[in-house]
Design a protein around this nucleic acid. Structure first.
Length: 465
RNA sequence: GGCGCGGUAGCAAAGUGGUAAUGCUGUGGACUGCAACUCCGCCAUCGUCGGUUCGAUUCCGACCCGCGCCUCCA
């Protein structure tokens, strides 16, 4: 089997052909660290983490880079508002991002480059772009204009290829006022001057800071090479961010392709509406994590195809939680069975993932595998369990201890495990005494505390639900 | 105005030219002291209208509806 991916560049699914099968290079746009991240930021992380896991089954070495944008006007603004040092702020939120992503069972990327640690590389790239006639420096001494370096989009013949726009199209609907010093309205900033009270770095064009798009091009060049296999990010980044990355990198490399496959995940909406400041409906990952296990968030994200728009809501989260309860319930029943190591290369779940990351299909196969495990007997049981766990592992699911899944506290004021055990003992005594009314009273009491009891031949199990 | 996406059961969501996976919910039954878990079963003709075809939800066209992007929002 081979991997097929949808390429935004060609707007079609195509077989993935690595540049070098010994080393796959993938880059995904990471967060700008000026706040906690919302669930929409988590989608690309989960999606491309899953792709990373799949790639690792196919190739010996996968270099997966996800950047941290730690210099940006939004960061500067927030730091000023909080009266906090910019690097302290960005360090704090970068760590918060890592924590949130880890809670969603994302593996760490192999490379996590920071923008501020690549300023020389960025300046070098701008210098080359100017030399090659793709960029120009504003050197007119005019306050507010002096010190800008702009990319000249007209110097690139196929600018707009990724987003499918012509220069005229882009300008026709432009909503933003055009700076007068631009030679052409579509030109974008590579380098901009910093005021004395703003962070800045010395450059051939004066003290300043990089434009947003520059860091990705420079860091990819440094860590992954001129041409990479896969570049990913949110759908909204197609234009202008990725378009401009392509412009910078291709022009700096005399037209060499930048990324062979461009992948973009769809947006997450909240109860049918786009997350936005005006609606005040952002769902921050850390807030959600107070109410739901990270695996529930991950399951929800993977329950829809990554290119589709997805509606986040309470019903969806609760439904996902119950689905995971069912799966972990099967695993709990067979907790004493040791999973056999199995070859999953011909499993339907794996095949689904190879088809442009069809995670909804793969998850449905997980449910089938769980039922197969449940009905398996003898030597087939360890094999069936192995198949379930291995396939789930490709998506970062079902890897925790099922006992823990059901008994871990699900809220701040939960009854303790010890107290639950004590009440179960009390109930068992009542049952032994044939005092069923008393036993039921205990059951009801625990139920009101969010604990469900399950009797079986082996004794009474409990879970929070 | 330009570019693009989507409309499948109560909800979510795959998929296929030959009458539609999977999960949650609901519901009938088995199991159970009662439950829960689990097991067996039931619950859709795929936005509308045309066309192509032996046959379309799946291809083509029109229409209706919803949505995204168009310079820094994943």
């Amino acid at each position: 089997m081979s991997l097929t991916l949808y390429n935004t560049l060609t707007r079609s699914k195509q077989p993935f052909e690595p540049i070098d099968p010994e080393r796959i290079a993938m880059y995904v746009c990471g967060p700008t660290v000026y706040n906690r991240v919302h669930i929409g930021n988590a989608r690309p992380a989960v999606v491309f983490d899953t792709l990373y896991r799949v790639l690792n089954t196919l190739y010996p070495k996968v270099e997966y880079a996800r950047n941290i944008t730690d210099i940006d006007d939004k960061i500067m603004k927030t730091a000023a508002e909080l009266g906090e040092d910019i690097s302290a702020l960005s360090t704090r939120y970068a760590q918060a991002y890592f924590d949130d992503m880890a809670a969603l069972n994302n593996l760490s990327p192999t490379i996590v480059p920071y923008a501020t640690q690549h300023i020389p590389e960025m300046i070098d790239m701008v210098t080359r772009l100017i030399e090659k006639g793709h960029a120009y420096n504003i050197d007119n001494g005019v306050e507010g204009e002096q010190g800008h370096v702009l990319f000249a989009v007209q110097s690139m013949s196929d600018y707009g290829a990724l987003s499918g726009r012509s220069l005229d199209d882009m300008l026709a609907g432009a909503r933003v006022e055009v700076a007068s010093y631009k030679k052409y309205a579509g030109d974008f900033v590579l380098w901009k001057p910093s005021a004395d009270n703003e962070p800045g770095w010395d450059s051939p064009w004066g003290r300043g800071r990089p434009g947003w798009h520059l860091e990705c091009s420079a860091m990819i060049e440094k860590h992954l090479g001129d041409t990479i296999d896969i570049h990913g990010g949110g759908q909204d980044l197609i234009f202008p961010h990725h378009e401009n990355e392509i412009a910078q990198s291709c022009c700096a490399h005399d037209g060499k392709p930048f990324a062979n496959v461009w992948m973009h995940n769809g947006f997450i909406n909240i109860e049918g509406e786009k997350m936005s400041k005006s609606l005040g409906n952002f769902r921050m990952v850390n807030d959600l994590l107070e109410q739901y296990p990270g695996e529930v968030l991950r399951y929800v994200i993977l329950s829809a195809h990554y290119r589709s728009e997805q509606n986040f809501g309470k019903d969806l989260l609760d439904s996902a939680w119950r689905s995971l309860d069912t799966l972990y319930g099967f695993l709990r029943t067979h907790n004493d069975i040791e999973a056999a190591s199995v070859d999953i290369s011909d499993s339907d779940a794996y095949i689904a993932l190879l088809d442009d990351l069809n995670t909804p299909m793969a998850i449905s196969e997980l449910h089938k595998l769980a039922r197969e495990m449940h009905s398996a007997e003898g030597d087939n049981l360890p094999l069936a369990k192995g198949r379930l766990l291995a396939n789930a592992g490709l998506m970062g699911l079902l890897q925790q201890d099922p006992e823990q899944w059901f008994t871990l506290s699900r809220g701040s004021d939960d009854i303790s495990a010890e107290d639950v055990e004590a009440l179960i003992a009390k109930r068992n005594q009542a049952k032994t005494d044939k005092d069923y009314a008393g036993a039921d009273a205990v059951r009801e009491e625990l139920k009101s505390l969010g604990v469900v009891l399950e009797d079986s031949r082996e004794g009474t199990k409990w879970r929070r639900g």
